[in-house]
Design a protein around this nucleic acid. Structure first.
Lengths: 212, 212
DNA sequence: TAGATTGTTAATCGATTAACAATC
DNA sequence: TAGATTGTTAATCGATTAACAATC
């Protein structure tokens, strides 16, 4: 099936639908069907939107009945590519980086559907290098290229100070990683074939302040 | 001046413009003017968009010259209400919560333009209650309503496990806080007069996986 | 004055919602 | 069969971009 260019917002919503299904504990009922109406309500979007989004990728529903919940969950996992193990790296083993890493590891261990596996941390501090966080080794940033290849790291998380974030990003790009999740509060520049998403707590806080 | 309903995306961009100006270190030149063209380039949006966004709130520019950088910065701070001290609370003094708190405190101490002041943490763990994180006290969640009033907490950050996040949110709402930043990976429901923004790392990671 | 850049209107683009024939 | 709900087309809505007169 030919998939047209998919807007970013649609992907964001697919992730939401998937999480809604996962949280519903649908495995308890093998034969559960869910309508676009109900899925929409639970995810916080309209029924029409749900149908439109899903229709972009195929025909997953049955008229008069709805969507087979378990199948839809599997389909969404496949579309979003979260049905396979994904090795994740993190640069900057500071407070935030450590917290993120532990958080991720915990989810990975507790939830068999959560396949983001922390594979390596990178830092410049000689004090930290060689140590590990719950079994995840800390390597010197100089070894990034080598380790990315060796461990097949597909997503790199950046949690370094803003001042060095661009420099580190360039390194990550050179190491061949095509997807970056950035926590540094600064605008990063990457080549067009690299996908960057920036999560910035201080932007979020400032945004909220407007509504006070 | 009458301000029309402002779309959320515009607020998001205003925050971006403000940060761009702050990062430019414009204080070194009292008389610096910046064009919508340049500001747009630095922030990653078109010049027309910059002008349109700003025009929603007033006329800040000068034809043929551009915007007085320092004045624009002050205007944006006022519009976004980040020109005054804002007391922030956090529920869930776990790993992530602690990391966020320390991160915020550090920024507050280092940057005189960053006015989000961590005022209190809340937790249920008797081990943690009574202790403090870099001077910020940890209170029992039961005292939330009282402490919010006493400390004039305006934004509450939620960093508790997903399982109790809605329950805690209801408490936050009862305590009178009108702006919530949520880190728990779950859809929360709040009354329409409460502003909620959810930052979810696992959603971000899943979204990135699609582009692999 | 000449050149540059704003604020704003009009044109375009894209995304959401409504509606309904098809069909389980 | 009757009722329900899909997939999809058409209508609506909103946001972005282009263009340009006003003016510093």
């Amino acid at each position: 099936m030919r998939i047209p260019r998919v807007p970013n917002v649609v992907i964001r919503r697919l992730v939401l639908y998937l999480r809604t299904l996962v949280d519903m504990d649908i495995r308890s009922d093998e034969n559960l069907f869910i309508s676009s109406q109900e899925l929409g309500e639970r995810a916080g979007v309209t029924a029409a939107q749900v149908r439109k989004d899903l229709a972009l990728f195929g025909e997953f529903g049955k008229q008069g009945v709805g969507y087979h919940a378990l199948s839809l969950m599997r389909e969404l996992q496949a579309i979003l590519k979260v049905d396979r193990d994904i090795a994740v790296g993190l640069v900057g083993a500071g407070e935030l980086g450590m917290a993120m890493t532990r958080y991720n590891i915990r989810r990975y261990n507790q939830n068999p559907d959560y396949l983001f596996r922390m594979a390596a941390l990178f830092d410049i501090d000689p004090e930290k290098i060689g140590k590990d966080v719950e079994g995840v080794p800390i390597f010197p940033v100089q070894e990034m290229e080598e380790r990315v290849r060796e461990l097949n790291i597909q997503i790199m998380t950046i949690a370094v100070p803003a001042a060095v974030a661009q420099e580190i990003t360039d390194m990550v790009v050179r190491s061949g990683v095509k997807a970056i999740l950035n926590f540094a509060p600064i605008k990063l520049t990457v080549p067009s074939d690299v996908h960057l998403y920036s999560a910035d707590v201080s932007l979020d806080l400032q945004q909220l302040a407007y509504y006070l």
